[in-house]
Amino acid sequence: MSARTRGVTRAERRLARRLRARDPKALHDLHDELGAAVFGFLRHALRDSWAAEDVAQQVFLEVWQRGGEYDPGRASPLTWVMTIARSRAIDHLRRRVPEPRDPAGAADAASHSELDELLERWRLAALIGRLPEQEADVLRRRFYDGRSQVEIAADTGVPLGTVKSRMVSGLATLREALSGEEGSA
């Protein structure tokens, strides 16, 4: 992570203050916002739902224990938490081959570049999760279901102009969030 500061939002400063004050609700809020992305990333990285549950718990325990160190000037909460998740995933992959058999072999099985690619997908998924549901729904129909804007308007009964404006707004929010995230990564 670079030492340069990034644009910090008021919400991020407030979160940092609450984590420093060891406010349990701050952790619950963070879990509500990022828990699905952390769990999804870990399920794919570890290919084991059971282990993913344990490691996800470990990630948020570490967030709780290291909350006082969180500096929003260096990373967004999403980047910070996902970086912890990546580290714990690597730890788990190294450890899960029964010792004392080759402990390095497992980490190689899921290469670091594969993990980074997964991490990027789940960071984007987390950002989509923050969008207003109507905007996220239009993006989901367009980019996952492969529907055109005209078809989305027909499927949902929403006027075409509204579909277009929701898509423009959703994409603009994602671009802005990504540029902020990538500035902090």
Partner: peptide
């Protein structure tokens, strides 16, 4: 961004709820 959105799979578009926080 559009390429990245098109590359997302069903799990990313419909994420499973995480296990409860303990």
């Amino acid at each position: 961004l559009l390429t990245r959105l098109e590359a997302l799979g069903p799990d990313e578009w419909h994420p499973e709820p995480p296990p409860p926080l303990r």
